[in-house]
Amino acid sequence: MRTERLVQRLLGLAAGCSVAVTLLIFGFMVILGLPLATGGTFFRMFTSAWLPHQGVYGIAPMVAGTLSIASLAVVFSVPVSLGCAALISVLGSGPLPALLHRLVRFMTGIPTVVYGFAGIFLLVPLVREWAGRGSGMCILSAALLLGVLIAPTMILFFSDSFASVPRTYLEAAEALGATPVQKLLHVVIPCSWRGLTSGVVLALGRAVGDTLIALMIAGNATAMPGSVLEPARTLTAHIALVVAADFDSLEFRTLFACGIILYLCTTVMVIFTRRIGAAWEQQRW
């Protein structure tokens, strides 16, 4: 009995430590970013531009970059993912949909840096030629590649929630003479809106949180992007690029503001998906 209690304590300690890490990450960012808030520059930072030579360290362009790249990636990816999920679980016949399912699962294992590497040498020149100006490293290229990266998250989530629609509903629709497409449009999709919403939110979270694609493909310019064919810098890429700066400088402190924004974004998305009752298994960072 005594050993059992001891073991339980130890296991509980491990779980507690893991929770502590989550809190510690946030705590560290708040403490290190605090001088910004007391210095009165905290709110001005979100609206001003990044002009380090004039001592202005605003992160508004990075917020804009993150928003445009992530939302564009989701816009590209949602229709394709919806089509693929429908093909896998409802519309498809023959061996191809099963193969597609396998490919999508495999995609979750492909290293991000390899996507980025292929993107630089294959996608960027294509976009450059098509646009006819610039280097090809722009919001559009990054969003296209990011769309491919987040597609498996959505497809696996969508097809799982399609599969969890009660069989009796489908049989009822079949008995009324519905075609597969009618079943999809009038039964399956309306029944699985929860899964669809949380799939999109999770994918958006992945798109916002991804560092490598934006860092390698988006061009990293600190100016406010004017169109999708211009380079931009995301919050995550900004952290990666500025980290080498002096520890006590204001420039370095702004990183923690970026970090706090990203952390809070994640928290909101996680709480939202938990609220609408999403399963966790499909989430892959």
Binding site: T211, A240, Q283
Partner: peptide, 15 residues
């Protein structure tokens, strides 16, 4: 908490 830890961008863990 574990969901949040799983969801935060990896660059934050690096930071």
């Amino acid at each position: 908490f574990f969901d949040i830890l799983a969801g935060i961008p990896s660059i934050l863990v690096g930071l």
